[in-house]
């Protein structure tokens, strides 16, 4: 998996490419923006071609790192494969999920400024 990190109006956007499984999950877990409890992160899942329970676990734990678990991680552009695994584990309940990165960033920034 590769993670491309960009930033827009103070929000980190992590775009994941490839496979998010037990092997690649630590990479996401150890990402600086993920670890920072103050930082709101948008994770773009469009290019994730495979995710399993370890991948879900990594995203859920990323959320727990945040000061506001329900808003600290915002998910964007889930494809059908990813969405199905979220659905099975019920993890979709924990996140705000957008079908567009720009909308996700707008939401994240409004959240961040509201809590600041």
């Amino acid at each position: 998996m590769t993670i491309t990190e960009t930033s827009k109006i103070g929000i980190a956007i992590l775009s994941l490419y490839g496979t998010l499984d037990a092997l690649s999950a630590p990479e996401l877990r150890n990402n600086r923006s993920i670890i920072d409890p103050e930082k709101t992160v948008v994770i773009d899942l469009q290019q994730v071609d495979f995710i399993d329970s370890s991948g879900i676990g990594a995203i859920v734990s990323a959320s727990r790192q945040k000061r506001q678990p329900s808003g600290g991680i915002v998910l964007a552009c889930m494809n059908d494969r990813v969405r199905k695994v979220f659905e099975i584990t019920n993890a979709q309940k924990l996140f705000h999920i957008f079908d567009d990165t720009t909308a996700a960033v707008d939401f994240a920034s409004s959240r961040q400024s509201a809590s600041a």
């Binding site: 399993d52 329970s53 370890s54 879900i56 676990g57 990594a58 859920v60 734990s61 959320s63 727990r64 678990p69 695994v85 099975i88 584990t89 019920n90 993890a91 309940k93 924990l94």
Partner: peptide, 18 residues
């Protein structure tokens, strides 16, 4: 229990569901 932000325990759940 998803509300407690668990990190593990999804594997067998996924197997059983799919």
């Amino acid at each position: 229990d998803i509300e407690s932000y668990p990190e593990n325990g999804f594997g067998l759940l996924i197997i059983r569901k799919v």
